[in-house]
Computed example of a mutant assay.
Amino acid sequence: MLNRIDLADIHAPKRLAGMVLDMLGPLDGAVPVVQVAEALDISAVHIDRFDGFEGMLLTDRRRTDGVILANTRRGDRRARFTVAHELGHFLMERHVPSDEGGFRCMPSDMHEKSKAERHYRQEAEANRFAIELLAPAHLAVPLLVDPPDLRQALSMRDLLDLSLEACVRRQIELADQTLAAIWSHEGRVRHPVRSRAFPFLTCQKGHALPKETAGFRAIQKGERGITRMTETSAIAWTNNPEIEIWEQTRIGKNGHAVTLLWADMPDEGDDNGESHRELGMPTFR
């Protein structure tokens, strides 16, 4: 049984999400996030098309109760994540409202940030709570078998009722392999994401996809679907020609695509003994 009193004074987002899931009991599918929010003193959840914000939590500073608004402009699955994000703000009582009416979250706030400012820290914590609640490791990891494949993220999407982008990011974070992903539109990078161990990606936002890659050729053909995982040029994606990289691309509609990269990283002590510095943090949407 969900009881907000038992969640008081828990400030770590992952632990807080775990406690909510423990109260909820065994699940074999999508978390009923609206019902969870309503059981934890959210008096109403409005999921609709709105202008000017991604999500909003209307509450007072004492968190007596709250109302959540979630925008469906980016899809119903994205709106589920937004509901969980706003619930995170509500439950983490150290979070300070952005104005007198509560929390107003813009699309740019739905990314984890590395900045130390309170606003970005709060947004990152709300995102962490949301993904740990909606895609807990015990449900996501069993889908991530070897070798990696974008179809695993699609299975996670369908099982957990999340956006494909959130599931690819969760795949990168939880998989045993060293992964990265490049989201693109009409052959240009929208944003790259990589695991901590993946080497620096030379292909950054606004860049054209490397022409020597299988992803570029598949996108040029314009046929929707998922390519097979094939070995690719490491130097096309990174500044390290010594590693082996495989790639796979899913071509969606209206010129949108995502390319999954899998790096075979040398064990520490291999070759000249150098190891790759851990960089980057996956974010969620």
Rank of each mutant, 00 (worst) to 15 (best):
A263L: 09
E247H: 06
R188L: 03
G222F: 06
V189N: 05
S233D: 10
E186W: 01
P210C: 01
K211S: 06
W237A: 03
W262N: 06
E268N: 13
W237H: 06
G273C: 08
Q220A: 14
G187R: 06
F216S: 11
G206M: 07
L261Y: 09
T213F: 02
K211M: 11
N239R: 13
G255I: 00
E231W: 09
Q220S: 13
G215H: 07
P210M: 05
Q248D: 04
R217W: 03
T202K: 15
R196W: 06
S233L: 02
W246P: 02
V193R: 04
I226L: 15
Q204A: 10
Q204V: 13
F198R: 00
W237G: 02
D270P: 10
N272G: 13
F198T: 00
N239Y: 15
G269Y: 05
G269N: 08
V193A: 07
H191V: 04
P266I: 00
R190W: 11
Q220K: 11
H191R: 15
F216G: 02
Q220Y: 13
F200S: 05
H256Y: 13
G215W: 09
T230P: 04
M265F: 05
R228P: 03
A218T: 03
E223N: 10
L260S: 04
M229K: 14
A234C: 04
H191D: 09
T227H: 01
D270T: 10
H207T: 04
D271S: 11
S195Y: 08
A263H: 10
K205R: 12
P210D: 03
R250E: 02
D271F: 12
W246H: 15
I245N: 01
R196E: 14
E242K: 15
T202Q: 12
M265V: 05
P266R: 00
V193W: 02
E231T: 08
F200W: 02
Q248R: 06
K211I: 13
R188F: 12
E247V: 02
I243C: 11
H207M: 09
N254S: 09
L260E: 00
L260Q: 01
M229Y: 07
